[in-house]
Amino acid sequence: MADTMTGSDRREPTVIVDDAHVVYRVQQSATPGTGSPLASFKRIITGTKPATLREVHAIKGVSFVAHKGEAIGLIGTNGSGKSTLLRAIAGLLPTDKGAIYAAGQPSLLGVNAALMSDLPGERNVVLGCLAMGMSPAEVKSQVKDIIEFSGINERGDFSSLPMRTYSSGMGARLRFAIAAAKKHDVLLIDEALATGDAKFRRRSEQRVRDLRKDAGTVFLVSHSEQSIRDTCERAIWLESGLIRADGPTADVLKEYEAYVKR
């Protein structure tokens, strides 16, 4: 272990997660019995928390350091807090306790970035690029490339049709193409590689490799063990908001597989 420590001391940290906790507050519609006007009036008078407000403790104290040039895969079963952790690193979700430090502004590259479904794909590209902080001139020069990369125009002129007319695969491809158009210091990728057909997948994996070259650090959330094995040398296994294992990808994946098969 001694040599890895001196090694990590020399390397430059890009993301430091220090005992981070993330809590979602979910306002539900009332369940029978708690939803009567009388019951809610009583709650207001007594000052208790409404039963409809539920707290979901998604990340329960996670600590790790990521260094420059690392690609880290996040694995874990559904609902283990992987996507939440990425959003917290990106600064999109506030931490309740602890802190997350990052070099520059980490960017989240997800497939569920909301765009306006009533607008044509082309205008969504412009809007998405502007929201990522590009200047109008940059956007202008990129729009064509983005639409071409997404491949939505392969079957006719779809880029001028409203996005609600797209198939789910087409929408996901366009969103990925928009997000991948920018260079990032710290890149967080959420399942983005799992979208589209085999052809698009190949293209997008190539694009992620290119982005990795420019980015300091890459985090990848994916259920595909193959893509984690291909792109990451380090893996972090999250289970119900806690780190179960953190280390070289092969070791962590072995442990994880044993756990899932059980």
Binding site: P13, I16, V17, S63, V65, A88, A99, Y101, A102, A103
Partner: peptide, 16 residues
């Protein structure tokens, strides 16, 4: 070093 000090030494800013 604690993580906090490490972050400060390398000039990382707190997300959020």
């Amino acid at each position: 070093l604690t993580l906090k000090e490490l972050a400060r030494r390398h000039g990382l800013s707190a997300a959020g």
